[in-house]
Design a protein around this nucleic acid. Structure first.
Lengths: 247, 247
DNA sequence: AAGCCTTTGTGAATAGGCGCACAAAGTCAC
DNA sequence: GTGACTTTGTGCGCCTATTCACAAAGGCTT
């Protein structure tokens, strides 16, 4: 075990594992649900069940943030909510711009989950003249030409790319040049960005293909594969990877 | 090295690694792009660059499907497209139903990427009377009451859940009871399903929170963390985990 | 036909994540 | 104040994934 005096450096020491970071939002959501039900305290076992993970994993994840539990009792919900929120950077507001106002862009613009967790949509941009000026979810669509100006003036720090595939890299380059270092990409392309820029991608088509792969396995494989072999865990969890939506 | 005579069993032997399966669709997309440009042959280095991965990883991934490359030359694009498609089960058609026709459901219904890769949307269902009968992307929205009937009659094998969070588990239970074993979940809840059912989730809110975490790190951390430490790789790749959209 | 050059396929080393199982720590009842 | 009970925090071994680095394989030129 690490010596006691190192505890302070250990917690949150350069590096909460990526896998842990990816689960913190899930825990946070479960905690909010508990809070709404008026629950004040929760054990790792209960919270793990709600989040769909192993309780040891949950405890290890939380231990990366520090020692916020009480042995024999559990975790105080409110305190944990605060600590996770702080760790994820949700105690501050993040200004988001959405580029591309097609079907998906509209859906994202109307998505309630933004505001609820400290994300504020400050811009809706598109290149298509026919949608410029349109009102969507209380915002007016602006021209992509004003991209740099809007990013600078409104302090946009996260950009969501929901353009057709062909436009995504160009838009991304401009966005990065304008100083943005966090991009959420829904376009079905692999974006190339400089060191220090963080890109995450969401890709419906890839998810479906992964499902198809497993479904096929269950059904008996492409050609003479053993049916039912290599099946899927099927406990509602799916780790992995995600990419984006075809335009 | 594995003996030559085991080669046949090795390829696709019970278990292409999950991580590999998740990347195959990315390779496939890159290959299609090459095909469109009329490229007949590609080296692992080139294809890896297009897919945004390490070339050794690409070769190892492909080696799980068998030996489809020619040393000194590379891979034949068309042949590789076929092999990957077959492995992913894209040589057959998959019948998909979308439950929940809110903003997101509509975007998904209108999403062109479905048809293009062997996925056919055969149903659009909702519980809200006011949208039943509406025409969306050439399909009529049907009542969720007919869920079981529609799944059975049309041979639906993959269901996309785009309902509000509160309804997702109930819908999922019904879908599973009706025999579906592959679910793509956009609702911001952890779905519980029996063994053998495969659930993948897509969650915008979680992606944003992960971005916020890294963005905060870059900016200097929650309280006195070392700025610029533990930054993100930032090469356009982001592995991880994804969950779903708040209703 | 022989040798050079390119590129694959994969062993081996490394890194990272997972989950068991348990000692340590704290609560609660009496 | 003491002891029984609960639950955390984590050491440890296992397993998967990643990356390097190179021998084997094949094509191409002369």
């Amino acid at each position: 075990m690490t010596s006691r005096q190192n505890r302070t450096r250990d917690r949150a020491e350069r590096g909460i594992p990526e896998a842990t970071v990816a689960r913190l939002p899930v825990y946070l959501r479960a905690l909010h649900a508990l809070q709404d039900r008026g629950v004040a305290t929760v054990s790792s076992e209960e919270l793990a069940a709600a989040a769909g993970v192993n309780s040891a994993k949950l405890r290890k994840d939380l231990s990366h943030l520090g020692s916020y539990g009480t042995r024999g009792v559990g975790y105080e919900v409110e305190y944990l909510v605060y600590q996770i929120s702080r760790e994820l950077g949700l105690t501050q507001d993040w200004v988001v711009a959405i580029i591309g106002v097609g079907n998906l862009g509209r859906a994202l613009a109307g998505y309630g989950g933004f505001a609820s967790r400290g994300f504020r949509v400050a811009g809706l941009l598109d290149a298509d003249e026919s949608v410029i000026g349109q009102e969507i979810s209380g915002m007016t669509v602006e021209h992509i030409d004003r991209l740099e100006e809007i990013i600078a003036e409104r302090g946009v720090s996260i950009v969501v790319i929901a353009t057709p595939a062909a436009a995504a890299q160009t838009v991304c380059d401009r966005v990065v040049a304008a100083g943005v270092t966090s991009v959420l990409n829904f376009a079905p392309v692999v974006l190339t960005v400089p060191e220090g820029v963080d890109v995450r991608k969401v890709d419906l088509s890839i998810e479906l293909q992964i499902l198809a792969f497993h479904e096929q396995r269950k059904a008996g494989g492409p050609d003479g594969y053993d049916p039912m072999a290599g099946g899927v865990s099927g406990n509602g969890r799916a780790s992995g990877y995600v990419e984006a939506v075809e335009a």
